[in-house]
Design a protein around this nucleic acid. Structure first.
Length: 273
DNA sequence: CACGGATCCTGATGGC
DNA sequence: TGCCATCAGGATCCGT
């Protein structure tokens, strides 16, 4: 469900509610991808100082340590200013604060809630964040930097984008969309992409992510922001989920293929090598 | 050590 | 209607 835009939309809608909140209780449901890494009681009385994002991770800076939240494939966060409704079968964490309750809903449980007592330099934070590539909407992400990163990778560009070691936050939907905009085939080896084409891809990634952000995140299935509202970007997808349908630019049927167990979509006419 | 594949889990969907 | 196979927005881990 969540790629960078969805996580960022979540962060933006959550920040005003969580800023300065004091944790009173943490209730955990079924296990998530990783254990919390501490006893839930240890978080009591800690205060939320800031809400940041790194790739698809949400980072809650506490006055002692850092709480990392990942939404996996099916996760979403909601904030309840008053008493939340009873937890459902897939509500696996309730972070109760003096300002309200942050609830993590995640049917597939690929998501995670992890406490790093020593903040970003904590080993667990290093393990999860240390290898991440550039933030696509920050100034360090330039056409040259993208090109340089791609030069190091021999795999297909689609898989390099998904891996997050060069640039973070681009998931399965936006990878296909960005490659279509840049007119690059998903199967092209990353190190065979010229500076000119990397420059197009750079612009395409930013354009696709910014559009999705402005639209409030995609809504392929059930993405909701912290207020429970859904976005609508996916209805404008150029290629994602459109196998067999005519390309919006040239009419050629969109093709679907499998790369690393993930579907890719592309127009065989508009996207060369 | 870089790469590709298997893997975690539940729900929705479509074919028979 | 029921049963089964397939697929879904992620990312780590493990074997080669």
């Amino acid at each position: 469900m969540p790629e960078l835009p969805e996580v960022e939309v979540t962060r933006l809608s959550l920040a005003p509610h969580l800023m300065g909140a004091q944790i009173q209780h943490l209730r955990l449901g079924k296990p998530l991808r990783w254990p919390l890494g501490t006893a839930p009681e240890r978080l009591c009385d800690l205060q939320v100082l800031a809400l940041r994002r790194r790739g698809k991770y949400l980072l809650l800076d506490l006055n002692q340590g850092l709480l990392l939240v990942h939404l996996g494939m099916s996760g979403s966060l909601r904030f309840f200013a008053t008493t939340p409704p009873p937890a459902g079968a897939h509500d696996h964490a309730d972070l109760q604060t003096d300002l309200g309750t942050l609830r993590l809903h995640d049917p597939r449980r690929f998501g995670a809630l992890v406490y790093a007592p020593q903040g970003e330099r904590d080993p667990i934070a290093q393990k999860l964040l240390g290898h991440l590539g550039l933030e696509p909407l920050e100034t360090a992400f330039t056409p040259r930097a993208l090109h340089a990163g791609l030069q190091q990778k021999k795999s297909a560009i689609k898989q390099v984008l998904l891996a997050g070691a060069v640039v973070v936050g681009v998931g399965n939907i936006y990878a296909s969309e960005a490659l279509f905009l840049a007119k690059i085939r998903p199967t092209t080896r990353a190190n065979r992409i010229s500076l000119a084409r990397a420059t197009r891809l750079h612009a395409a990634i930013q354009s696709v992510l910014r559009q999705a952000l402005a639209a409030g995140g995609s809504t392929l299935r059930d993405f909701r922001n912290a207020q429970g509202e859904s976005g609508y970007f996916i209805q404008h997808a150029a290629v994602y989920g459109r196998a067999g349908l005519p390309c919006r630019d040239c009419g050629t049927p969109i093709r679907q293929l499998l790369q690393g167990q993930r579907s890719s979509f592309f127009c065989p006419h508009c996207q060369h090598v």
